[in-house]
Lab assay of single mutants.
Amino acid sequence: FSITQFVRNLGLEHLMDIFEREQITLRVLVEMGHKELKEIGINAYGHREKLIKGVERLI
């Protein structure tokens, strides 16, 4: 299971460039909250919320 699959499953594949540029893996994403996601350029609250909720389902 990769970050690419995870992001695609959430319908947020347009954010993949950010994850690749910042070298974010699923392991790193698990540790990130709204503040960190915003810092790397994910400005939409809804997108950040989707990512965080998606990660919570993985754990």
Rank of each mutant, 00 (worst) to 15 (best):
F1M: 14
F1R: 06
F1N: 09
S2P: 09
S2D: 14
S2Q: 10
I3V: 09
I3Y: 03
I3A: 05
T4R: 15
T4V: 13
T4W: 12
T4M: 12
F6H: 00
V7S: 03
V7C: 11
V7A: 06
N9G: 12
L10M: 08
L10I: 08
G11W: 01
G11F: 04
G11P: 00
L12D: 00
L12V: 03
L12Q: 01
E13T: 10
E13I: 10
H14L: 11
H14P: 07
H14K: 09
D17C: 11
D17T: 12
I18G: 01
F19R: 00
F19P: 01
F19Q: 00
E20Y: 11
E20W: 09
R21T: 07
R21P: 04
R21W: 05
R21E: 06
R21V: 05
R21M: 06
E22R: 12
Q23W: 06
I24A: 02
I24L: 08
T25P: 05
L26M: 13
L26F: 12
L26N: 01
L26S: 03
R27M: 10
V28D: 14
L29W: 04
L29Q: 01
L29S: 01
L29V: 04
L29M: 06
V30R: 13
E31V: 13
E31K: 15
M32T: 01
G33N: 07
G33L: 04
H34E: 04
H34F: 04
H34K: 02
K35W: 06
K35C: 07
E36T: 04
L37M: 08
K38C: 09
E39I: 08
E39Y: 08
I40W: 04
I40D: 00
I40V: 09
I40A: 06
G41I: 04
I42C: 05
I42T: 01
N43C: 14
N43M: 14
N43D: 14
N43S: 13
Y45I: 10
Y45N: 07
G46M: 13
G46V: 15
H47C: 12
R48T: 03
E49P: 02
E49K: 12
K50I: 13
K50R: 12
K50T: 12
L51E: 00
I52E: 01
K53H: 10
K53C: 09
K53A: 10
G54W: 06
G54V: 05
V55T: 07
E56L: 14
R57K: 13
L58N: 03
I59K: 13
